[in-house]
Design a protein around this nucleic acid. Structure first.
Lengths: 349, 349
DNA sequence: ACCGAACTTGAGAGCGTTCTCAAGACTTGT
DNA sequence: ACAAGTCTTGAGAACGCTCTCAAGTTCGGT
């Protein structure tokens, strides 16, 4: 019915109630110093007219932009996407972000930025100038890129670094990578495995190192060696397959593999099949990520569930609630969990 | 190095080059009537200063907002997400949209809106008022919601309806659902299958009907009956399992199933396994969507590849390029393809 | 050369909000 | 009851850009 042709502005509300623009503005922003009676009257008019402040205008007048910008790696995102490998990381992140943003009246935008180019600064700078976000969320590997963090710090934009605990500006969020790898490895040792390999992610991701560290520590605690048991992939299927093949041919006594991504675990599963190994009878397999895919493989994979959505949600919350005030030398750790499925079993005798 | 503390504005560029704001604005927007010499000088200054126009200010001054808003169903998105069922639809859509938007200097935002609530109008209206997008992309089931399309039409915002060909305002994009179902069914008939069942999606989605129609037509052409071969699910795993069980117990002679989503196909695969049926020896299976999951099941599933990303890309392109000018009684059809994998085989003798 | 047309440039208003600052109304303490 | 606050309200500028419109400049045809 209320067929809105012309945009309803704060002025309409002011005229409707007979107060000044400023008073309406105060009501909108929950500002102090407004008589309850006036506040109610204005709020009623807002509801009646269906008034919603224009984001653009709010931004213009020097206040917040109500936008949180999430930066993802373009190259990897595109590759995942093109090959339909399951970009579920993006998905989880987006949803965790959108939900939390909307809870606070914010919006989330996703920007794909190329890590490897010299244009990083230009690309990111352009996005920041255009959007003027109130906060930025950096995912790996951008969260470890000094160029980027410096740029953000110089502009005074609060930001969160996910998957990084390198010192420097910005709040840091991690997902308990070392602990998770330790947990997975210990569990395998508990099941009687003595030769437990790791297919790690690329070295430029700190989390790769943390996982290796957790794995090594658990091995040491169980009195096991890590010799010849580490291979590195790039999180993708191809390198995962190569790594698995190398591990399995080099170590005939291998009975368990921990892969640093679902894709690499999938590859290991396939390689095992090719080599005539049964999972989990001959080989136990644990993956990182726990994207939807691993529930439907044969057998379903035991996996470390990375709480990406929750982590991003926490990052958003921090940015909105405390992003404004100064230094943030804080590390938030969101715990990952081990989801046991059918790809793990006691070691063969 | 150029450590930007204060935002660079159009005024800085104007002063730097000694021309008026208006002239700089013309250069930015590629407007006509600027001497090449002046244009170059201004452009050089823009590059030198690293100037990027503020989206908010551009929007304010009455021109475009450079924002395309994509509306998704909140309920379904959340359910998918919570259960980690793979929200790949969102993913594909987002990426297709983001890429195309950024190619044209636009941005894409995702808004989750609840279909079933009476608040649809309010929720969407608020988003529109706040963002003032230059175009809106509606996905099913919103693309068929009269309340929504009317609201958009009344506000004069160009919009694209994906997965709907119901007459009405807005451009419509479909993904060849009838044709795809026909193709899948014919292929199965070709392989010698005589009893080919369909697990369809819910009736409120037009595409469910189109797929049924394509299936029926192909059956008729092959001289086959559809009796007792149709079940309906909600695209999710649970209802898919229920439907598959019903079909398989009711029809002992059934040798092929087409499922209207990957999740439902996965469910059918599991039900077949439970019933001791081998896929594809005893039962052929074709799914719709072709999300990453189906490549890694055992066996990998033959699937109709829904070109979601491309469809959204086309929608975005249309909105940006021709969204402005008036009526859009146009239907764009993006073709789906059949990707054959190991879940289909000749009918058992 | 001359006139009208087309091209090029600039000045100023306006978009919808919030910020700063000042003025008026109401309290409180003595 | 009066000075000194504290609350409440409003006026006007400012944010960065594009629009409209008018003025100045160049060009083509005769």
């Amino acid at each position: 019915m209320a067929r809105v042709r012309k945009t309803v502005t704060i002025r309409d509300v002011a005229e409707e109630t007979g107060v000044s623009l400023q008073t309406v503005s105060r009501v909108i922003n929950g500002g102090p110093n407004v008589r309850p009676q006036v506040r109610d009257k204005v709020q009623a008019a807002i509801d009646r007219l269906g008034y919603v402040p224009s984001l653009a205008a709010q931004r213009m007048s020097g206040s917040r932009s109500y936008i949180i910008l999430a930066i993802n790696d373009r190259e990897r995102t595109l590759a995942d996407w093109r090959e339909r490998q399951g970009t579920d990381w993006v998905d989880q992140m987006l949803l965790g972000g959108i939900l939390t943003c909307s809870k606070h009246g914010y919006r989330m935008m996703v920007e794909l930025v190329d890590t490897h180019s010299d244009h990083v600064e230009r690309e990111l700078g352009a996005a920041l100038s255009a959007l003027q976000p109130d906060g930025v969320i950096l995912t790996p590997p951008h969260s470890e890129n000094r160029l980027i963090t410096d740029l953000l710090a110089a502009r005074g934009i609060p930001f969160a670094r996910i998957g990084s605990d390198a010192p420097g500006p910005g709040i840091r969020l991690t997902m308990g990578d070392a602990g998770a790898a330790h947990l997975a490895t210990s569990r395998l040792a508990e099941l009687g495995h003595r030769r437990i390999a790791m297919i790690a992610g690329p070295a430029q991701y700190s989390l790769s190192g943390w996982r290796i560290e957790g794995w090594r520590r658990a091995l040491a605690e169980a009195g096991l060696s890590d010799e010849g048991l580490l291979e590195v992939g790039d999180f993708g299927y191809e390198t995962g397959a190569r790594a698995a093949r190398a591990l399995l041919t080099r170590n005939p006594d291998l009975t368990a593999i921990i892969a640093s991504s679902d894709q690499m675990a999938l590859a290991a599963l396939e390689v095992a099949r090719e080599l005539g190994l049964d999972v989990p009878r001959d080989l136990s397999l644990i993956s990182f990520d726990n994207t939807p895919i691993v529930r439907f493989t044969q057998p379903p994979l035991t996996a470390i569930d990375q709480p990406i959505a929750e982590t991003v949600a926490r990052a958003v919350e921090w940015l909105i609630e405390r992003g404004g005030n100064g230094e943030a030398d804080e590390v938030i750790e969101v715990a990952a969990a081990l989801v046991e499925r059918a790809s793990t079993a006691p070691a063969r005798a």
